[in-house]
Amino acid sequence: MHDVAVHRGKRLIWSNATFDVPVGSFTAVIGPNGSGKSTLVNLLLGGIKPSTGSIDVLGAPTRTGNPEIGLVPQNHSLAHAGSILCRDLVALGLAGTRWGVGLHGRDLAATVDEALAAVDAQSFGHLRFGEVSGGQQQRISIAQALITKPRMLLLDEPLSGLDLAGQVDIVELVHHINHERGVTVLFVTHDLNPLLAHIDSLIYLIDGTPEFGMVDDVVDSGLLTRLYGTPVQVTRSADGCVFTRTE
């Protein structure tokens, strides 16, 4: 990303963004509400164009419909997706861009089974999306994103609405995908704590400019206090994990 600025209508969301995210990394995207985290996701997906500068994703300019980028959206609306089967929602990730009707076919079913297995969701694939728990819904969303075998995964606030155990589950799963498949992960969150054990780097959006840094270099009390706008303390434990605490 080189000298990128982005506007929504006439409003400047952020500007002066110049950074490179290493391929294969697990990067958190963090910033206060309204700082433009979702805008960054949308920009990488090609849904909006930068007003200045240039962005390359996986060695090519951004474009919509790139199957090499998997998206886990902020919240699947239960009003819309709740009535259909988990496995059909996953199948749509692959077949949903094709003409015609129906989600049948042995090849499709096998690919869906594979995607469900990758997120350990075989046991509830046959249930309606609205009937499974929040954590299970996130697993289904991740399976759907993985079905095109993307090289990059964008997750937009996948931890919202999950309890602590559920958050840890999802982070472990994403870490596993990042580690085993070499998928580059951009993980949008407003809470860094559940991620700190696994991320390599972060993009932080403060004062109208996204900046990139390696975890060890940038996670300190000063940065987090600026990010959250409230005093935050950083403690390093014996096994190298970093914890942040709001006082």
Binding site: T64, G65, P67, L71, P73, A81, G96, T97
Partner: peptide
């Protein structure tokens, strides 16, 4: 059922 992902996938 999935407008955000559908748009991201180019629909």
């Amino acid at each position: 059922v999935d407008p955000d992902v559908a748009a991201a996938r180019g629909l």
